[in-house]
């Protein structure tokens, strides 16, 4: 207990992530007037609520040593299902919302089962899921379906005041609830710890008698559910369903999770880290907006550079721990 301050190597990426965020926020605050305000900080959450939710699901997948490429397409599919059921079938939101949430969940179950029972690579299975979900949303309609419904308008436009004259949206509340539940699940439930164990060594987990099959399927189910929930939030945000929604979002998500300190090889990572990862992506965009003259592609280049930084950092950590083992 004395050496609280001494860092485990595995926590180094998380510390790096948080420092990076603080650094970038300070940089923005010093450089631009109006940057250092609570609302700018809260806007990071408002604009990226959906990304936070999928990043949470993706964190579990990556910690377990897998990957889920289908999340972006699931957002599009969910938005289409929601929009067409609401506007074309004229169903009540009480029916629409559960059905929409089922979309990704069911896809997740199927993906998880394929990955586990047929020993297929997560990369390929979720790649198929990605094609499938986007194809299905186009089959519903190739056009944008705009949503005009009191419930959705309410969800989109309500502002929840927070102290200091600032506000957040309902989506932010949902996202934060998801984050807290996920943190609890990751650290205080058997399922959560099994995910880490599988990511550390699937073979060991098997030999230790852990329910590997159930856990793995549940992980992809969870990720699918999160993607659907994010799809709903995205629909609130955009007030429309469209097959091109969230194109390439899976890459942003993976990037956020990696920048958040989760090892892509699995076994280590924190839900909270992924949230900070999302905020870093958000702050890059905010800085670019404030700068005015910088163009949007700098976001991608910056994300790529950060990815490189964190992946190399991870390699160094692995090397050092291997070296320690060789000598120890």
């Amino acid at each position: 207990m004395i050496n609280r301050l001494s860092l485990d190597y595995k926590q180094l990426p998380l510390v790096a992530t948080i420092s990076l965020f603080v650094l970038m926020f300070s940089f923005g605050s010093l450089r631009y007037t109006g940057f250092f305000s609570t609302q700018v900080f809260l806007n990071l959450f408002i604009n990226n609520a959906f990304l936070i939710v999928i990043a949470v699901g993706m964190t579990f997948v990556i910690v377990s040593g897998g990957i889920d490429l289908s999340v972006g397409s699931v957002i599009a599919l969910t938005s289409m299902v929601t929009a067409s059921l609401t506007m074309e079938a004229q169903l009540s939101p009480f029916i629409v919302v559960p059905i929409s949430l089922l979309v990704g969940t069911v896809l997740g179950v199927i993906q998880g089962a394929l990955i586990h029972f047929y020993n297929l690579q997560p990369f390929i299975v979720t790649l198929a899921g990605m094609f499938l979900a986007r194809g299905l949303s186009y089959m519903i309609s190739v056009e944008t379906i705009a949503i005009d419904h009191p419930f959705f308008n309410f969800m989109a436009n309500s502002q929840i005041p927070v102290p200091g004259g600032n506000f957040i949206s309902i989506s932010v509340v949902i996202a934060l609830i998801v984050v807290f539940i996920a943190m609890f699940v990751a650290h205080f439930t058997k399922f959560g710890r099994n995910v880490y164990a599988i990511g550390g060594s699937e073979q060991s987990a098997m030999l230790m008698g852990l329910p590997v099959a159930r856990t793995k399927i549940l992980i992809y189910t969870l990720s699918g559910f999160c993607a659907s929930l994010a799809g709903l939030i995205f629909t609130f945000y955009m007030l429309s369903g469209y097959g091109l929604h969230a194109n390439g979002m899976e890459l942003d998500t993976i990037a956020a999770v990696v920048i958040g300190g989760t090892l892509l090889t699995g076994g280590a990572g924190y839900v909270a880290g992924s949230v900070v990862g999302v905020l870093i992506l958000g702050i890059i965009q905010t800085i670019i907006v404030f700068e005015g003259t910088l163009s949007s592609w700098w976001t991608k280049i910056a994300i790529g550079a950060l990815l490189l930084l964190f992946i190399v950092l991870q390699r160094v950590i692995v090397w050092r721990s291997e070296k320690k083992h060789a000598n120890g």
Binding site: K10, R193, Y196, A197, G199, G200, S201, Q203, S204, A205, L207, M208, G267, A268
Partner: peptide
Amino acid sequence: VNLCSNLSVTE
């Protein structure tokens, strides 16, 4: 050692 080295000793 067939344990998960990424988890704590307790775990």
